[in-house]
Amino acid sequence: MIRQPDDAPRHVVSTSAEADTVLRRLSRDGWTPRAGFALPDPSWDVGAAHLVLHGRVADDDLETAKLAVLAAARGAAVVAVCDTESPAGRALVDDLSRLGPVHRGIDGSDVIANLIPEQRALLDRLAAGDTIAAAAAAEFLSLRTANRRIAEARALFGVRTTREAVLAYLRQRQRTE
């Protein structure tokens, strides 16, 4: 099957942490991450390779923005970290929008939708002040399973600590309610 450019996801985010979260999600969906926006493959359509190219677009770097747009036009997924208020950022979003939808930032509802019920229950209990051990016991999970579920949630939110995961969960849950 030949992929169309509008089949490949396009993301423009403001931080490397957001980019890491998006890249993990795309990797789980079968995309192969590759740093930089230049495509070495001489064939025009690279959609079958299922590549997601990622990198930073500096505030005044229109050349890198052009490479990202060309990669997206050739069928690659793109995750760009940039300031969307800069000239290069505005040009990047405008040009990528001509190819199809552009996801700006991380949609909190997407992250929460990717949580399994056990993770939501554990995060709710942690937000209420329970320890991981108490939350695990209340949810009839082993401590090891609870720790794994919380680690998976941290990865989804793109944070390093459980406290940050709980805070991100609460913020994003409020946005969706």
Results as ranks from 00 to 15, higher is better:
Asp29Lys: 15
Gly89Leu: 14
Val78Pro: 00
Val78Arg: 02
Ala133Ile: 00
Leu92Lys: 00
Ala73Cys: 08
Gly108Gln: 05
Leu156Ile: 12
Pro40Gln: 03
Ala128Val: 04
Val102Glu: 04
Ala128Pro: 05
Arg175Met: 14
Ala146Asn: 10
Thr32Asn: 07
Asp20Ile: 03
Pro87Phe: 11
Arg173Leu: 14
Leu156Asp: 12
Leu143Phe: 09
Asp124Leu: 00
Ala76Pro: 07
Leu62Thr: 03
Ala80Val: 03
Glu164Cys: 11
His103Asn: 08
Ala77Val: 05
Leu39Asp: 09
Thr84Asn: 05
Ala146Ile: 10
Val166Phe: 15
Asp124Val: 00
Gly105Lys: 02
Leu92Gly: 00
Ala153Lys: 09
Asp7Ala: 14
Leu23Ser: 05
Val46Gly: 04
Ala138Arg: 03
Leu167Cys: 10
Ser43Asn: 10
Arg24His: 15
Ala91Arg: 12
Arg173His: 10
Pro9Thr: 09
Ala138Asp: 06
Ala8Val: 14
Thr131Cys: 07
Val13Ala: 11
Asp7Phe: 15
Ala136Cys: 01
Arg120Thr: 03
Arg171Phe: 14
Glu18Gly: 01
Glu177Ile: 12
Leu23Trp: 02
Asp94Tyr: 11
Gly158Ile: 10
Thr15Pro: 01
Asp83Gln: 13
Gly129Ser: 06
Asp7Arg: 13
Pro5Phe: 14
Gln174Met: 13
Ser43Ala: 13
Ala8Asp: 13
Ala35Thr: 08
Leu99Met: 11
Pro40Val: 05
Arg154Ala: 10
